[in-house]
């Protein structure tokens, strides 16, 4: 298994945390993993992204040019990375915030209304975790319960009250992705 994922969105949408959550879970699952953020002078409203490499083998470069998966939380991220996804890879995007026409036939698009799902669960800021759930369901990279344990351990103190709804967000993101996957891929 070797997955190279870019999580990208506006600052404050939780792209970096979604990537961290995946990285924590990958460690618990005994995988090799690197997490590297963009760390320019970012602020809320600007763009932020991180690259996560999860592998059965020791990891060389922590940065990639052609990721196997891109998780786009906003439109600028979709536009920036659509052409960079590796052929055969996937672009998982937050369809609540963009109305887009896919331009490529050699990658899979997974549209997830992540803001709506987050809102239904009481917190729109869980869109990042919804999309992480969709990623896990689409790739089978790690079991959902390993990521749930990572939430138990690593959700910041001030967000603890959202623990249960974050887990629900993860599950619903996964369920939504599974329900919309085309038979050819499943």
């Amino acid at each position: 298994m070797h997955e190279e994922i870019i999580f990208s969105g506006f600052g404050g949408q939780g792209a970096l945390f979604a990537g961290q959550l995946l990285a924590y879970a990958a460690v618990d699952a005994g995988k090799h993993v690197t997490w590297i953020p963009s760390y320019g002078p970012e602020m809320r409203g600007g763009t932020a992204h991180c690259t996560v490499v999860v592998s059965d083998e020791p990891i060389g470069s922590p940065l990639v040019r052609r990721p196997t998966t891109v998780v786009a939380l906003n439109l600028p991220s979709f536009d920036k990375y659509e052409n960079l996804v590796k052929p055969g890879g996937r672009l998982i995007y937050n369809s609540s915030l963009m109305d887009v026409q896919p331009n490529r036939a050699d990658i899979r698009y997974v549209a997830v209304p992540a803001n709506e799902i987050g809102e239904t669960l009481g917190n729109v800021r869980q869109a990042n975790v919804v999309l992480l759930g969709a990623f896990l369901a689409t790739t089978g990279a790690l079991p959902l319960d390993v990521v749930e344990s990572a939430l138990d351990l690593h959700l910041p103190e001030r967000q603890r009250k959202y623990l249960a709804s974050n887990k629900a967000a993860l599950r619903q993101g996964a369920a939504h992705a599974l329900a919309t996957l085309t038979p050819a891929y499943t």
Binding site: Q20, T34, W35, I36
Partner: peptide, 10 residues
């Protein structure tokens, strides 16, 4: 370098 300072790894 800065990337090793900023990155996370087990």
């Amino acid at each position: 370098d800065g990337s090793l300072g900023q990155m996370m790894e087990p």
